[in-house]
Computed example of a mutant assay.
Amino acid sequence: MRKETKKKVRILGAVLFFLYLLALTYFLFFAEGYGRSVEGRMYAYNLQPFREIKRFWIHREMLGTFAVFCNLAGNVIGFIPFGMILPVIWPKTGKVLRILLLSFEFSLCVETIQLVWKVGSFDVDDLILNTLGGVIGYLLFWICNKIRRKIYG
């Protein structure tokens, strides 16, 4: 890829990453439809791995498809752009282990802020699902990058 094209792709990636972070911030901290109200909230947390995932799966019929999808798939899908765009704008992150660690660290920051501000809850299952989403995003980036290199050399 030519230098000018690389620069344009990185700039576009940075703009998309910024927009992604804005949308993520809204959904994780301010979207009242997802239980993000601060009033009258107590500290809520889950430190037992797979407890909430199991609970949502067992009670999926009672909770409804939307709630289960938002909690389980939403946490994964929400971090796919993180794993896809970050290697474009910051090439040194172009390893799956680095993306795994960065996804985990970013998710840990988000969960900690949710706990401290009492918006949502600190959930170790969210850490697992968010990290999985970041890794899936990176794998999608990696596959697309391999295809691009085969087509364009």
Score class of each variant (00 low, 15 high):
residue 153 G to Y: 05
residue 91 P to C: 04
residue 120 G to Y: 03
residue 122 F to D: 08
residue 8 K to G: 13
residue 31 A to W: 01
residue 84 M to S: 13
residue 37 S to H: 00
residue 89 I to M: 10
residue 132 L to E: 03
residue 124 V to P: 15
residue 18 F to T: 14
residue 17 F to C: 06
residue 139 L to M: 13
residue 42 M to Q: 13
residue 1 M to L: 09
residue 57 W to T: 13
residue 40 G to H: 07
residue 7 K to F: 09
residue 121 S to H: 10
residue 141 F to L: 06
residue 102 L to P: 04
residue 56 F to R: 03
residue 6 K to R: 14
residue 138 Y to I: 05
residue 23 A to V: 13
residue 97 L to W: 04
residue 15 V to M: 02
residue 12 L to V: 12
residue 45 Y to V: 05
residue 148 R to G: 14
residue 142 W to Q: 09
residue 143 I to A: 15
residue 33 G to N: 12
residue 125 D to W: 09
residue 33 G to C: 04
residue 38 V to L: 10
residue 90 W to I: 05
residue 58 I to E: 13
residue 88 V to Q: 02
residue 24 L to V: 02
residue 73 A to L: 15
residue 73 A to I: 12
residue 83 G to S: 08
residue 106 F to S: 11
residue 71 N to R: 02
residue 6 K to W: 07
residue 79 F to D: 11
residue 71 N to I: 00
residue 136 I to A: 09
residue 23 A to Q: 11
residue 112 T to L: 11
residue 58 I to P: 01
residue 117 W to K: 12
residue 11 I to V: 14
residue 100 L to V: 05
residue 100 L to F: 15
residue 17 F to V: 03
residue 94 G to T: 02
residue 19 L to S: 05
residue 135 V to C: 04
residue 78 G to L: 00
residue 121 S to A: 15
residue 140 L to G: 14
residue 133 G to R: 04
residue 34 Y to P: 00
residue 120 G to R: 01
residue 48 Q to A: 12
residue 37 S to C: 00
residue 114 Q to I: 03
residue 103 S to Q: 08
residue 132 L to V: 12
residue 20 Y to A: 02
residue 16 L to C: 11
residue 56 F to D: 06
residue 13 G to D: 08
residue 78 G to W: 01
residue 133 G to F: 02
residue 54 K to M: 07
residue 77 I to G: 00
residue 148 R to H: 13
residue 149 R to W: 05
residue 127 L to V: 11
residue 128 I to L: 14
residue 45 Y to F: 12
residue 149 R to A: 12
residue 153 G to A: 06
residue 99 I to G: 06
residue 110 V to H: 03
residue 22 L to Q: 08
residue 43 Y to P: 01
residue 36 R to Q: 13
residue 75 N to S: 12
residue 61 E to R: 10
residue 41 R to K: 15
residue 69 F to R: 07
residue 34 Y to Q: 09
residue 24 L to T: 06
residue 105 E to D: 09
residue 16 L to F: 08
residue 150 K to I: 09
residue 98 R to C: 02
residue 35 G to P: 14
residue 46 N to W: 04
residue 90 W to L: 11
residue 120 G to E: 03
residue 57 W to K: 01
residue 41 R to Y: 04
residue 1 M to I: 08
residue 39 E to I: 01
residue 4 E to M: 06
residue 65 T to C: 00
residue 97 L to Q: 10
residue 134 G to F: 01
residue 87 P to V: 03
residue 141 F to W: 15
residue 15 V to S: 07
residue 114 Q to A: 05
residue 118 K to L: 04
residue 137 G to V: 04
residue 81 P to W: 00
residue 141 F to A: 02
residue 60 R to F: 12
residue 105 E to S: 14
residue 111 E to M: 07
residue 30 F to S: 10
residue 117 W to S: 14
residue 144 C to N: 14
residue 74 G to K: 04
residue 140 L to A: 14
residue 145 N to Q: 11
residue 146 K to F: 06
residue 127 L to S: 11
